[in-house]
Nucleic acid binder design. Structure first.
Length: 210
DNA sequence: ACATTAATTGTGT
DNA sequence: ACACAATTAATGT
């Protein structure tokens, strides 16, 4: 039994299940910015996050991206679970936000465990619950907030996820995540800088006090 | 070290 | 939204 498994899932899943996971699961290290799932892909295994973060994006018909939410350690991808069960194509794209370590589990086990382990059922359901809640937050953000507020939320979330106040992104990349365009983002960032909330640089920006 | 090129960022219309 | 200028980073010589 690996310590990293126990540390992240020990309080959620029972001992016996953890043993099974560690003997069956495949550990994988994913480099930053690696595209893990593309829209339309068929997914055949379920990832459990050990550490790092993954961003989940949706794309519209014109190819515009929109950031849905991040997965963090202790999370799993509920999209993957439905995809696997129904043999559906993925509706989302998943890209490693930071260097990330995961365990891959085969779908067959997923189903077996649903019957066998209560803690697994709970885990799956609460995972759905969590994703859904995150989605609602994002939905609210789009529906009820202006882009300037969304941008602030985005910057906050990003610094939290990366544990770093320096954001290594161009304005263009930020604009993609928010499904906006670069010029607007540049102007808003400039405004935040004048308010002393952030510091701008080329290819990066530093969050001071949001 | 310097020049060229490419990408990013700022701003006016 | 578009166009363009200014700035900076990357690359080659």
């Amino acid at each position: 039994m690996t310590a990293e498994l126990k540390e992240n899932y020990g309080h959620l899943l029972e001992e016996e299940l953890l043993e099974e996971i560690s003997s069956i699961g495949i550990f994988k290290d994913i480099p930053e910015n690696f595209k893990m799932i593309e829209i339309g892909d068929y997914v055949s295994s379920i990832p459990l996050l050990i550490n790092g973060a993954i961003k989940i994006l949706r794309e519209d018909k014109d190819g515009n991206e929109l950031l849905l939410y991040y997965l963090e350690k202790g999370d799993t991808c509920s999209m993957t679970m439905t995809c696997c069960l129904g043999q559906q194509q993925s509706e989302i794209r998943a890209i490693a936000e930071t260097d990330t370590r995961i365990i891959l589990l085969p779908i067959s086990k997923m189903e077996e465990w649903m019957g066998k382990y209560k803690s697994w059922r709970n885990f799956v359901f609460s995972s759905y619950q969590n994703r859904l809640n995150e989605l609602f937050l994002t939905l609210d953000s789009i529906a009820f907030y202006q882009l300037d507020e969304r941008l602030v939320k985005y910057l906050k979330e990003k610094t939290r996820i990366n544990k770093n106040t320096i954001i290594q992104n161009t304005h263009k990349e930020i604009a993609y995540d928010l499904n906006s365009n670069r010029v607007v983002v540049s102007r808003l960032l400039k405004r935040l800088e004048k308010l002393g909330k952030i510091e701008l640089g080329r290819n990066h920006l530093k969050v001071l006090n949001l």
